[in-house]
Simulated scan of single mutants.
Amino acid sequence: MNQVVAGEDQVSEIMENEEISDAMSESNEIVSASNCFHHFVANGFSKLDQSSLESCIIQTSVSQNLHMAKKTRVVAIHKNMNTSRSWQIRAHSFRVSIKAVADKCGGDANVGYAWYGASGDEISEIVTHGFSWRIKSAAVTHNISLSPAKHLLDSVLSSTVDENGLRHLLLCRVILGKQEVVTGDSSHQFHPSSPEFDSGVDDISAPTKYMVWNCRLNFSILPCYIVSFEAPYLSESKIIKPISSWITFPTLISILSRFLDQSRMASLKKQYTDFKEKRITRPQMIQRVKQIAGNQGLSAILKMYTDKDLQVSSSSSRRRAVMRVV
């Protein structure tokens, strides 16, 4: 059977890393629990050697895009090497879909890598049965969200800690085709708004979220790698109270600039300008900050910083705009 996943050159190209670092040299020790990855291995996912090109590319991408290299420890990366009949069918369906979407879209199926974060149990179900098993439990949501290769924070926050203290992410190939903007109030949408579209995004020019409809899960997403990592700075609670209760808007904007893309930073700065010019109120500014950064992501980011990182001098803090994050 042809390999299910793309080769190293394709991984390097799509992940868009210009340099390969040896960041894994001190961060890829096997956890003590010998059966930690048993289910992955049983389903045809083979552990990559820490010195392989693919491992270095993926590890570098995680470290660079999270900006948390010292606080995130990649423990293992498993690659999909499954040669079973069911995986042959999945891989064949994926290739056929690429051709069909490419023909429809003028030759380019717009295939890319994307991250999916979930509990270890859910990822085990996916590697066993594929994403289609979700449809049975999808009473509320009609699509699944994945993070583009360069914006994996949302997927990290969607992952949960297993009994070994590890979180797991799937790195998948996704057929995106022609995309349409899907807003937060589109929960009633069960499928693309017209045959013209193949997937959804939150922003056409600078997407931070891909949406694949349940009706297309069987042939639009192919799991390629499982990345297992430790992230002790993340709390299991959905709302994480920062160490410092108060923070100035300029300080917050400076911190968020390390994590948000240019589009969201431009929007954030515009909101702050509107606030300074009294076009919006402080409560409105706080709400818009949370909408732009994401409440859970905002809380997790602030959790990483100490009081010293967040505080400005007491002589100036009372004269500057502040917000309380709860």
Rank of each mutant, 00 (worst) to 15 (best):
S159H: 02
V161I: 14
V161Q: 11
D162T: 06
E163Y: 09
G165D: 07
L166Y: 09
L166T: 08
L166W: 07
R167L: 11
R167C: 12
H168E: 12
L169Y: 00
L171D: 01
L171R: 01
L171I: 06
R173T: 07
R173G: 04
R173K: 09
R173E: 13
R173N: 05
G177S: 12
G177E: 07
G177F: 07
Q179N: 08
V181T: 14
V182P: 03
V182R: 06
T183H: 12
T183V: 10
G184N: 10
G184V: 07
G184R: 09
G184Y: 02
S186V: 04
H188A: 14
Q189I: 15
Q189W: 04
F190K: 15
P192Y: 03
S193R: 15
S193F: 02
S194D: 11
S194K: 05
F197H: 12
D198I: 12
S199E: 03
S199C: 13
S199V: 05
V201K: 06
V201I: 14
V201C: 10
D202S: 09
D202Y: 08
D203L: 09
D203N: 15
I204H: 13
I204R: 11
A206H: 10
A206M: 07
A206S: 15
A206C: 13
P207M: 05
T208L: 08
Y210M: 11
Y210G: 05
Y210E: 05
M211Y: 07
M211F: 09
M211L: 15
M211H: 04
V212L: 10
W213D: 05
W213N: 06
W213L: 10
N214M: 10
C215S: 13
L217F: 10
L217V: 07
L217H: 05
N218F: 01
F219E: 12
F219K: 05
S220T: 02
I221T: 04
I221R: 02
L222N: 02
L222F: 06
L222W: 00
P223K: 03
Y225K: 05
I226N: 00
V227K: 03
V227F: 03
E230V: 11
E230T: 07
A231G: 00
P232A: 03
Y233I: 09
S235Y: 00
S235E: 08
S235P: 01
S237K: 14
I239C: 11
K241W: 06
P242T: 08
S244D: 05
S245N: 15
S245H: 11
W246Y: 09
I247K: 02
T248N: 09
F249H: 06
P250S: 10
T251Q: 15
T251P: 01
T251D: 04
I253F: 12
I253R: 07
S254A: 14
I255T: 06
I255L: 15
S257F: 06
S257E: 14
L260W: 03
L260D: 02
L260F: 07
S263F: 09
S263G: 04
R264A: 05
R264I: 03
M265I: 14
M265N: 05
M265Y: 01
A266E: 13
A266G: 12
A266C: 14
S267I: 13
L268C: 04
K270H: 12
K270E: 12
Q271F: 09
Y272T: 03
T273N: 10
D274Y: 06
F275G: 01
K278Q: 09
I280M: 05
I280G: 02
I280W: 00
T281P: 00
T281V: 00
R282G: 06
R282D: 03
Q284W: 00
M285K: 01
M285L: 15
